[in-house]
Design a protein around this nucleic acid. Structure first.
Ligand SMILES: [Zn+2]
Ligand SMILES: [Zn+2]
Ligand SMILES: [Zn+2]
Ligand SMILES: [Zn+2]
Lengths: 166, 166
DNA sequence: CTTGATATGTTATATCATAACGTTTAATTA
DNA sequence: TAATTAAACGTTATGATATAACATATCAAG
């Protein structure tokens, strides 16, 4: 069973696996996994929460790389376009994909307290939500191409901190 | 059967109904349905697509009201907080609610061609998505409080314009 | 009418994102 | 390999979205 953000685990293994998956995918599809693209993915992978483009620029600056905004946005565009990262629309922020390589319709669980973000895989394959809402769409003849699905709430750990019986 | 954005209908009736529902809800809950709040809701109701805060400011300016950004954002906050409007996260834009008054978990269908937005009601009552993905959340002990569900694609009309057999 | 709470007007600024263009690096092919 | 083309990068400037802060006005109670 694959572990999640809210499930303590050896994350360095995740990072290595994700980087290798990205590298392999790029090799196979003749995409350039350049230094800056790789570095931005590493920065995203190091966190279990979403990061804004300017957070990434700060991190790069701390490493001596004085990059301007387009540098971050271009790397993020590449990573998102190729499925190595996702944008969390609610947060205007980006997070590394935890199902690298596989085509999927991601859905996110965002903890409002610790800011942790977990990606869950809804539909496998390329088909957007077949459930409930896919039905409503079909009923009115709407053809769904992409879906943004993001839930906010409390992760297991943060539910303990919260007012116990409310 | 309630009509939708992608279903031609007498929209002036929708507008009147929505305004009256908002007014009634405000009266009952001792909320101030002020002139500017009402006007912003009217502006949103006049369109079947989402509008940015600055679009609303433009409209107000055209009416002689030279309002600054906080005016629009404050009115929008009020309307969204009280369920009279929703924010479409993908578009950084706002749209009037089509289920005024009722507690609901809205989901949106956004046409990438005509920019029309239809609101569909997923779960009635206050319970976020029990289906799909509610299961995945429960499995990992995550407590969902709110959900953002937005699909993009082609509305029935725009599917005709599109490459017919692709 | 006084008082406290809520809403508004206004200025300034924060935050998120992209256009445009010249330079560099990589891939293609002659 | 050298020439040619395409892709990526560095940099400046600007656009688009959103909020902080504070003074004034309006409303709701007492
Ligand atoms: Zn993913
Ligand atoms: Zn948490
Ligand atoms: Zn609604
Ligand atoms: Zn359309």
């Amino acid at each position: 069973m694959p572990h999640t953000t809210f499930d303590p685990h050896d994350h360095s293994a995740c990072i290595q696996q994700a980087l290798q998956a990205a590298q392999a995918h790029c090799a196979e599809h003749k995409l350039q996994f350049t230094k800056i693209r790789r570095r931005v993915l590493e920065i995203l992978l190091a966190q279990h929460h979403a990061m804004g483009a300017y957070d990434i620029l700060e991190q790069l600056a701390a490493e001596g790389q004085n990059a301007q905004p387009p540098v971050a946005y271009r790397a993020l565009d590449f990573l998102v376009s190729n499925g190595f990262a996702h944008k969390i629309q609610q947060l205007n922020a980006y997070i590394a994909c935890t199902h690298p390589g596989a085509e999927h319709t991601p859905a996110f669980l965002i903890c409002r307290t610790c800011k942790g973000v977990a990606e869950t895989c809804l539909a496998t394959g390329n088909h957007p939500p077949a459930g409930m809402f896919g039905g409503a769409a079909r009923d009115m003849g709407f053809r769904i191409e992409t879906a943004v699905i993001e839930a906010s709430g409390l992760c297991p750990a943060c539910q303990q901190q919260d007012i116990p019986c409310a």
